[in-house]
């Protein structure tokens, strides 16, 4: 039952949004085509703007993997991560998530390429990558903007949320896909 509902959401989310948003906008007298294109220009720039960041990250990760260093790291931590059902291969992504968005994107694409997007590892990596923001980036930008230096419990609370999100991703990937 639970799995059926989750699958239904996945299957219908995009078609429903593509139907409902322009319809509702038209009802509200928005010039749908023109406004759509305005946003589309932003989307295009965003996608192109990430290319250099992705090159920088994927090259570093590619070197790390080809040298065999990734295998050593994974082998070392696997017994630990396996305790809570996470393949050791995903530890780098789990750690990177809170630190850097482009780093996490690089590790996600690396995992999708190496293990396949429809493997358990690929799916788990996708859920992990999609389910939280880059904690340290958000904290730096938001506190930086108002000049707050003593951040009190913002970092621990954010990191606890990240850990919970990662464990939840591991759990639900097992539940739905294995």
């Amino acid at each position: 039952m639970f799995e059926r509902v989750v699958n239904l959401i996945s299957a219908y989310a995009i078609p429903v949004l593509i139907l409902v948003i322009p319809l509702y906008a038209a009802l509200k007298k928005v010039k749908v085509y023109e406004v759509f294109c305005e946003g589309a220009v932003d989307g295009f720039h965003t996608a192109v703007r990430i290319i250099p960041f992705l090159v920088a990250m994927l090259v570093a990760i590619g070197i790390f993997r080809a040298s065999g260093a990734m295998d050593i790291l994974v082998k070392f931590f696997s017994p630990l991560t396996r305790l809570f059902g996470m393949p050791g291969e995903l530890l780098p992504l789990a750690l990177m998530k809170s630190l850097s968005g482009s780093g996490a994107n690089g590790l996600l694409t690396d995992a999708l390429k190496t293990y396949g997007p429809d493997s358990l590892i690929g799916r788990m990596a996708s859920i992990m990558a999609g389910s939280s923001e880059t904690t340290f980036y958000v904290i730096a930008v938001y506190f930086g903007a108002v000049g707050v230096r003593k951040t009190r419990h913002a970092v621990p609370a954010g990191l606890i949320a990240d850990v919970a999100g990662i464990l939840a991703a591991v759990w639900i990937a097992h539940l739905m896909f294995s």
Partner: peptide
């Protein structure tokens, strides 16, 4: 990213991602 990597069902992670992020 999933689509670019050749997934047959790139959107299948939408539901699970919502659940995981709500828990987080």
């Amino acid at each position: 990213f999933r689509k670019a990597a050749g997934s047959v069902a790139p959107a299948e992670i939408i539901g699970p991602t919502i659940i995981a992020s709500v828990i987080g």
